[in-house]
Nucleic acid binder design. Structure first.
Length: 480
RNA sequence: CGGGGAGUAGCGCAGCUUGGUUAGCGCGCCUGCUUUGGGAGCAGGAGGCCGCGGGUUCGAAUCCCGCCUCCCCGACCA
C-alpha cells in the first residue's frame, strides 16, 4: 500500500489502484463481502445504482420493453446448446452440484447471463409473427467467478439489467440493438456525465454467441478503458439452439432474430474513475444521492436558530426538486464535515452559520471548482436546479477534455505503444487475431471498439503493416 | 495458477532480527467538561483466542513445520 497522509487518500498519480480502493471504502460506497470477490453495496453506493437504475428503467419501458424475472438456476445442459456461448462462459461458472442434502441429477449453473433460460422460454411463448417482437428486460444478479475481483468493476456477483428481445427480421433486430445503445448513451453520458465512445466490438471482443456487439467505451483517469454498456445482435444463433421459431404471415416456419443488452453495477466504478480526484469522489448531480449538503455551523447559543434556518432551506431545496441532506451531527467540527462531504463527492455544499444568517446569505462551496461564494438565503434554493445542471455540464466537459487529450492517432508501433500508455490509441488495424495477441503481449492493449463516428479511412495496420480492415480507425487501450 | 506483500483492539500500524514481567502507539469508540467558519482540546475509561493447527522451550506475538485468508502485479472477464 502506498503512503498517504493521515487523513487523505493516496493521490491518483501515485497509485491509482490504491486511490480507487481506499475511496470506495472510505466514501462508504461498498465493502468486501466474506466470500472472495463478493461486494456489499452500502447505502451510499447503492443509491447511486438506484438512480442509474430508475433513469434506465424509465427509458427501457418508454421504448416498449416490459420487465420480467427469470430464475437464477439454469440447467447445465442449456449452456451447452450454443457452442460459442459455453466456451465463452465455462471458465467463470459457479455450478451447484448438491442440494437438499443430495447430489443433483443434473448440475445447476448459477446464471452468468440469461440468454439460455430466456431463449427456452421465448421458444415456448412465440409461435406466430403476431407474437413478435417480444421485448423483455430483467433486473437481476448474475455470477461470474472472477480471478481478480475489484469492487464495482469486477465482482463475482453483480447486479445488472439484461434486455432480451426476439424479432421477425434481421433489420428489426439490428434496429433494436441500436435503440438499446441509444438509451445507454443517454444515461451514461447524460446522467452519469461519462463521455463514452459508441462503437462496435471487433470479433475477438464480441459477446460469446453474438454476431455483433455494440459498446460504449469510457476512459478512466488513469488512461485505461472501461466498458460502460454492451448491446448484442445475436442473429439466429440462440433461436437455432433453443428453437425460437415462428410462423410468418406467409405461413412459413422461420427462426427469430434475437438481441440482448446489458448495463451493470460496474457503471458505479466507472463514475468513480471518470470523475474522482485527489480529494475523493466527484459525483454528477444526475447520480448524486445528495446533490446538496447543508452544513449548519454554530455554537451553543446560535445552534437552534441555525438549525432552524438549515431545515427551512432544506425544505425549499426539496420543493425545488433537489436531493438535499442537512448534516445535523453536533459532535463533529465543520472542517471535518467539509472534508467528509468532499470525499463523498457531493456537488454543492451550503455552509450556514451565524455570520451568514445575520447577512441573509449562505456560503456555497462548489466541489468541482473548489470555490466558495455567498448566495442570498432566500433565492439560493430557486437557483439550485440551474446550478446543478450547469455543474453537470462542467463535469461532462471536463471528462470530454480528458478523453480527447488522451486519445491519440498512432500510425506505427512506437506511436501506438505510447498512445496506449496514456489512453486510447486510434489506429488502422488489420483485424487479425494473431496481430491483436501480439499487440496485447507488447502493450497490454486490446481493441476496444470501432467508433461509429470515425471517418472512412483505409491503409495499413499500424502494428503489422498488413491491409487495414473495418474501413476506419479502431480504438485500442489497456482495459479494465 | 505464476510472482510479490500482509495477517497483532473497530481502522492504521510498531513489537518479531537477538524468546522473558501486565503486548504497545495513533485514530476511532464511551463518560465528563470546554468547544464548533477547513479533519477541536483536556481528563478519565472500555476494548486483544497476536490468522489457524502442531512443534521446540522452564517460558512463544517472537524460533521451526504445516495450513488458511486477504491485498497487489500478470493470464480470464461486464
Amino acid at each position: 500500500m502506498a503512503k498517504r497522509n493521515e487523513l487523505g487518500i493516496t493521490p491518483q498519480h501515485e497509485d491509482f489502484s490504491a486511490w480507487y480502493n481506499e475511496l470506495v471504502l472510505r466514501a462508504e460506497l461498498a465493502d468486501r463481502g466474506p466470500v472472495r470477490g463478493t461486494m456489499v453495496m452500502r447505502p451510499y453506493g447503492y443509491r447511486i445504482w438506484e438512480l442509474i437504475q430508475s433513469e434506465l428503467d424509465a427509458r427501457i419501458k418508454a421504448t416498449g420493453h416490459d420487465n420480467a424475472y427469470f430464475p437464477l438456476f439454469i440447467p447445465e445442459s442449456y449452456l451447452k446448446r450454443e457452442a460459442e456461448h459455453v466456451e465463452g462462459f465455462a471458465p467463470e461458472l459457479a455450478v451447484v452440484t448438491h442440494a437438499g442434502g443430495e447430489e443433483l441429477e443434473e448440475a445447476l449453473v448459477v446464471r452468468p447471463t440469461s440468454e439460455t433460460v430466456i431463449g427456452e422460454m421465448f421458444a415456448r411463448w412465440i409461435s406466430s409473427y403476431r407474437d413478435l417482437p417480444l421485448l423483455i428486460n430483467q433486473w437481476s444478479n448474475v455470477v461470474r467467478w472472477e480471478m481478480r475481483p475489484r469492487l464495482f468493476l469486477r465482482t463475482t456477483e453483480f447486479l445488472w439489467q439484461e434486455g432480451h428481445t426476439a424479432h421477425a427480421s434481421e433489420e428489426e433486430a439490428l434496429a433494436e440493438v441500436r435503440t438499446a445503445l441509444g438509451f445507454y448513451e443517454e444515461v451514461v453520458r447524460g446522467v452519469a456525465a461519462i463521455p463514452a465512445v459508441p462503437g462496435e466490438k471487433t470479433a475477438s471482443e464480441r459477446f460469446a454467441g453474438a454476431v455483433s456487439t455494440l459498446t460504449l467505451e469510457a476512459l478512466a483517469r488513469d488512461g485505461r478503458a472501461i466498458q460502460a454498456a454492451t448491446s448484442h445482435y445475436l442473429g439466429q444463433n440462440f433461436s437455432r439452439a433453443f428453437d425460437i421459431n415462428f410462423t410468418s404471415a406467409q405461413g412459413v416456419q422461420e427462426l427469430c432474430y434475437t438481441t440482448s443488452w446489458g448495463l451493470s453495477t460496474r457503471i458505479v466504478g466507472n463514475v468513480i474513475m471518470t470523475h474522482g480526484d485527489d480529494k475523493g469522489l466527484v459525483l454528477p448531480p444526475g447520480v448524486a444521492p445528495y446533490q446538496v449538503v447543508v452544513v449548519p455551523i454554530g455554537r451553543e447559543g446560535d445552534l437552534d436558530a441555525v438549525m432552524e434556518a438549515a431545515d427551512a432551506l432544506s425544505a425549499r431545496l426539496s420543493a425545488a426538486g433537489v436531493r438535499v441532506r442537512v448534516d445535523r451531527r453536533t459532535h463533529l467540527s465543520p472542517g471535518f464535515k467539509f472534508n467528509e462531504w468532499e470525499l463523498r463527492g457531493v456537488p454543492v455544499r451550503l455552509e450556514l452559520g451565524p455570520r451568514d444568517l445575520a447577512a441573509g446569505v449562505v456560503t456555497l462551496a462548489d466541489r468541482l471548482s473548489e470555490e466558495k461564494e455567498q448566495r442570498p438565503l432566500d433565492t439560493v434554493a430557486g437557483e439550485m436546479p440551474g446550478r446543478l445542471a450547469e455543474f453537470q455540464q462542467r463535469l461532462l466537459a471536463r471528462a470530454e477534455r480528458y478523453r480527447d487529450e488522451h486519445t491519440a492517432l498512432a500510425d506505427d508501433r512506437e506511436q501506438m505503444a505510447a498512445a496506449v500508455a496514456e489512453g486510447f490509441a486510434s489506429v488502422l488495424h488489420c483485424g487479425r487475431a494473431e496481430c491483436e495477441d501480439e499487440i496485447q503481449e507488447h502493450t497490454k492493449a486490446t481493441p476496444r471498439c470501432v467508433p461509429f463516428a470515425a471517418r472512412e479511412e483505409n491503409g495499413s495496420c499500424a502494428w503489422c503493416g498488413q491491409p487495414a480492415a473495418y474501413g476506419r480507425r479502431v480504438l485500442f487501450a489497456r482495459a479494465y
